[in-house]
Design a protein around this nucleic acid. Structure first.
Lengths: 334, 334
DNA sequence: TTGAAAGCGTTACCAA
DNA sequence: TTGGTAACGCTTTCAA
C-alpha cells in the first residue's frame, strides 16, 4: 500500500481511503490510485484489514461429529447442506470457513469463538453438543444451529418439525396396514430424539393391534446402521416396517433387509427422513420426509446476518413433507 | 493477552511464548499461564497472529463456475470432492476457506492470491479458466488444480487420465455392439475436451461400420443436458449409444431418452464419467468411468503441502476404472 | 529466563 | 480534502 502511495505521490492513508471508495478523496486522485493499484496488481491484505476492522467478512461453518467418529464429511446430508450454505454465504459477499470437529477436543466452541476467525458461526447438527451450545450462546450472539428445537433451549436453531414429521411417517405406515414398526436410530442426538418422540406419540394413538414402540439404536453411518439392522433381524424377525431416523439409515436398512432374503416393501416397508438425492433413485425408491435444505440454508444465513446486525433473531421451524415412494407402497421392481 | 500477563505478573511476550509452548519459559511459570488462560477462556486472536506470522494455516478451495452460471455448488461431483478435501485439510490442522467464483469477475485469481487470505489454493475444475491459471502459476507456487492435464501447461494438476478413460468407454460400447455413439458434452472445458479426444481416437480406430464421431454440445447442468438430448433425439434419431461427458450429463440423457419413449440400454446404451454416488443407484444403474475422488483429494492436498514446503511438486494423473452397470449391458429392470 | 520495543499492513481519528 | 499518527493483537529480536 505504501508503494502505491509513493507512486501516486500521496500518503498511504489516502490510498486506503481511495481503495475503500471513500467520497472524501478527490475523484481525479482516486482514479489515479485505482489505476495504479490495478497495474501493480495490488490488493488490500485482508488479514491486516481484518485485524484493524475487527471483522472478517467470513462465516465459520462447523460440523460437529461428536456422535460419530466414522462419519466423514462426505455424508450426503452434510454435503448437500454445505453446498446450499456456500451458495447463500458467497452470495452475500462473505467467505465460508469450513471446519470439522472431532469429539476429543471438548473446548472447541469457545475456542473457535475466541479465535476471532469469523464474524459468525453456523453449526450443522447439534450432534451431542447441546450443552456446549447452551453455554456458548449465553455470551455469544452470532451463532445459528441447524438441528432440533429442544425445550428451554437458549441458542437459535433452524430445523424441521421433527416430532410432527415423525408422526406423519408412522401414521402413513399404519394407514398402509403396517403394525409392527421399528425405529432405527440413536436418540442421543437431539434431532433423532425428537423424531423418536413423534414416533412414540403416533404409536401410542395407533389402532389396537399395533405393536408397541421398539427402538434399535443405530448410529448414523451406513455401515453401523446396516450391522444394527442385520443383528436385529437375526434375533427378532417380528416386524413389518422400519422407520429409519435418517435416509442413510433407512437405505442401509433396505440393504440389510434385502440381504436377509426379505423384500422391501412386500415384507417390510421402510421410510427415511431427509430426502437426500439418493432417496429418489435407490432401488426401491425411498419414501421419506423431505427437509427443504435450500430453504433451510437460506433461513440459517438470514438469521445469522440479522444477528450480526444486532437483532435477536428467533429460532425457526419448517414443516417436513412426506414423499411417498416405492419402499412403503408398491411392489418393488427388483 | 495483556490481561493474562497482568494476572500472571509477567510481560505479554512471556505469555505469548508460554502459549506457543516455548521451552524458554520456566515450567512453573508456563503452567501458571496456561491455567490462567484456560480459566479466563483466553485464546490467541488468530487474525493478529496471522498478520504477524504471515501465514494463516488456511487453504482456499475455489470452484470456478465460468462455464456454467446455473451450476450451483450443490452439484454432486463438486460436493463429493469438497467433502474429501475437507477431510484431508482438517486432518492436517489447517482450515478450509471456501469460495465460489462466478464468471463476471475476471480478476479473481490474482486478487485471491494477493489478498493473503490463505497459504495455498486448491482449484476444483479448470472450467474455462485455463489462461488465468497459466498466468497465476507463473508467479505463485502453492496452487494445485483438479482437472485435465493439457500439453505445455505450467500449473500443477491432479486428475484422471481423461483421454484413456474415454477410449475405454468407447471401446466398451463398440464391444457391446454399438455402432452409432454420440458424445454429449461441452469441449470448452479442458477435461471434457480431453474426454472428447479419447472418444474420437477410439472411433477412428473402430471396426468398419461404426459411424463417425458426433458431438452434441451440452453444458454441465442436469437441465441443459436434458434439453440438449431431447432436441437431438427429435431431429436425428440415428444413434444407439450416448457417452455423457459427466455422470450428471449421462443421467440426464437417460431421462431424456426414456421420456422420448426409448429404452436404456435396449435401444440406447448410456455411459457416464465420474461415478458419483447416484450412478450406482439410478434406474437403470449407470455404467461409468470411476474417478477415485478420495485418492484425488489426498494427492491434491499432498502436492499442495509439498509446494508450501518449497518443493516443486509435479502434476499427477490417476487411472480411471470402468464400472460396467445396467445402462450399457443387461435389459433394464423397469 | 524475562522484558522492552519494533513491526506485521491496515484503517480511523485528529489536525491542518 | 489530505497527512500524520496511533492502534488493532500478536510474535520475535535484542538486550539484560
Amino acid at each position: 500500500m505504501s508503494d502505491i502511495a509513493k507512486l501516486a505521490g500521496v500518503h498511504a492513508s489516502t490510498v486506503s481511503r481511495a481503495l475503500a471508495g471513500s467520497p472524501l478523496v478527490a475523484k481525479k486522485k482516486r482514479d489515479l490510485i485505482l489505476k495504479l493499484a490495478r497495474e501493480q496488481g495490488y490488493v488490500v491484505n485482508s488479514i491486516a484489514s481484518n485485524l484493524r476492522l475487527r471483522r472478517t467478512r467470513t462465516i465459520s461453518v462447523v460440523i460437529p461429529l461428536g456422535h460419530e467418529t466414522g462419519q466423514a464429511l462426505s455424508d450426503p446430508f452434510f454435503v448437500e447442506m454445505l453446498g446450499h450454505l456456500a451458495d447463500e454465504i458467497t452470495q452475500r459477499g462473505y467467505g465460508m470457513f469450513l471446519q470439522k470437529i472431532l469429539p476429543p477436543m471438548d473446548d472447541w466452541l469457545p475456542r473457535l469463538i475466541a479465535s476471532h476467525r469469523a464474524d459468525g458461526i453456523i453449526i450443522i447438527g447439534q450432534s451431542t453438543e447441546h450443552s456446549a451450545l447452551e453455554e456458548a450462546a449465553a455470551s455469544y450472539r452470532p451463532m445459528v444451529v441447524w438441528g432440533g428445537h429442544l425445550e428451554h433451549q437458549s441458542y437459535c436453531t433452524v430445523g424441521t418439525d421433527n416430532v410432527g414429521g415423525a408422526r406423519v411417517v408412522v401414521e402413513h405406515l399404519i394407514r398402509s396396514g403396517r403394525r409392527r414398526i421399528v425405529f432405527l436410530g440413536d436418540p442421543a442426538v437431539p434431532e433423532i430424539k425428537l423424531r423418536h418422540e413423534g414416533y412414540k406419540y403416533a404409536l401410542d394413538r395407533a389402532p389396537r393391534g399395533t405393536a408397541a414402540a421398539r427402538i434399535v439404536p443405530a448410529h448414523m453411518t451406513a455401515d453401523t446402521a446396516y450391522e444394527a439392522m442385520r443383528a436385529f433381524i437375526k434375533e427378532d424377525g417380528q416386524f413389518d416396517a422400519v422407520f429409519g431416523a435418517t435416509d442413510i439409515i433407512a437405505l442401509s436398512a433396505i440393504r440389510a433387509i434385502t440381504a436377509s432374503g426379505l423384500n422391501v416393501p412386500k415384507d417390510v416397508a421402510v421410510v427415511g427422513f431427509d430426502d437426500i438425492a439418493l432417496a429418489a433413485h435407490f432401488n426401491p425408491t425411498l419414501t421419506t420426509m423431505r427437509q427443504d435444505l435450500p430453504r433451510g440454508a437460506r433461513i440459517l444465513v438470514d438469521l445469522l446476518f440479522r444477528r450480526l446486525d444486532g437483532e435477536d433473531a428467533p429460532s425457526a421451524t419448517m414443516q417436513a413433507e412426506l414423499i411417498v415412494r416405492e419402499s412403503s407402497t408398491a411392489a418393488s421392481r427388483r
